[in-house]
């Protein structure tokens, strides 16, 4: 089920850098120093256990040291009351929050990586190479509770049959997150900017209708037999 990010909340002093339509959140001239986000509060502990998050990402321009965030899940970490006060990345970092998501870098085209925020400490995976500007890519971010790992897969096709690259991160906690950020600015540094969009953001909500646990979609896919 794709998130209707058009109904997500825009926030921050530079929220004009983000626009939204039904299933797409677009960032334009989103600078490192800007404060902006496109987010929704799903309620306390909504995203726990195994996670299987998918989205389309398109970057048309990015400075070499720009570092916007997309597809971030975060909890209040005792920082805010659920339902209140989403913030930019550096601000939730400074406040000691917990989060898991993707960060984009302007290196040789652009490169995504996994970021984990663990009580105010940031941990990163290696970056994934091979992504070109002005090309849509199809991402899958998987968290395995048993293995305490998060893995980011980047594909070149919507059916996710052709893998461009992958990266993994050993997690320092398996948090149950409240907030989903489609887009989140860094809010540190200066004018390094990025343009692009995130679309068809799927949090795997239809995989967790009753209780949190192994995504049913994974089990369905693996159960199919080969003729």
């Amino acid at each position: 089920m794709f998130e209707k990010v058009g109904a997500y909340n825009l926030g921050g002093a530079d929220q004009a850098d983000i626009t939204r339509t039904s299933y797409r959140g677009t960032f334009f001239s989103l600078e490192n120093q800007d404060e902006a986000w496109l987010a929704k509060d799903f309620g306390s502990g909504r995203f726990g256990g195994d996670l299987n998050i998918q989205f389309t990402i398109y970057v048309s321009a990015i400075s070499s040291t720009a570092q916007p965030f997309i597809a971030v899940l975060a909890d209040d970490g005792g920082v805010t009351v659920p339902g209140e006060n989403p913030d930019a990345w550096t601000d939730i970092d400074a406040a000691g929050a917990y989060a898991l998501g993707c960060q984009l870098f302007g290196l040789a085209g652009w490169r995504p990586r996994i970021v984990e925020l663990h009580g105010g400490t940031v941990y990163n995976s290696a970056t994934i190479s091979g992504c070109s500007l002005s090309t849509a890519y199809y991402a899958r971010l998987v968290r395995s509770q048993n293995a305490s790992t998060a893995t980011l897969y980047i594909y070149s096709d919507a059916a996710r049959t052709n893998l461009v690259g992958s990266a993994a991160l050993t997690l320092h906690s398996i948090r149950a997150y409240d907030w989903a950020y489609a887009i989140q600015s860094y809010h540190a540094g200066s004018t390094q900017a990025a343009n692009g969009y995130i679309e068809n953001f799927d949090l795997g909500m239809d995989d967790y209708p009753i209780e949190r646990g192994t995504p049913r979609g994974v089990a369905r896919g693996m159960a199919l037999g080969v003729a």
């Binding site: 049959t161 994974v218 896919g221 693996m222 199919l224 080969v226």
Partner: peptide, 11 residues
Amino acid sequence: ITRAQFANMIG
């Protein structure tokens, strides 16, 4: 191979 077979092999 079909989509189902693809998913099975990936798994």
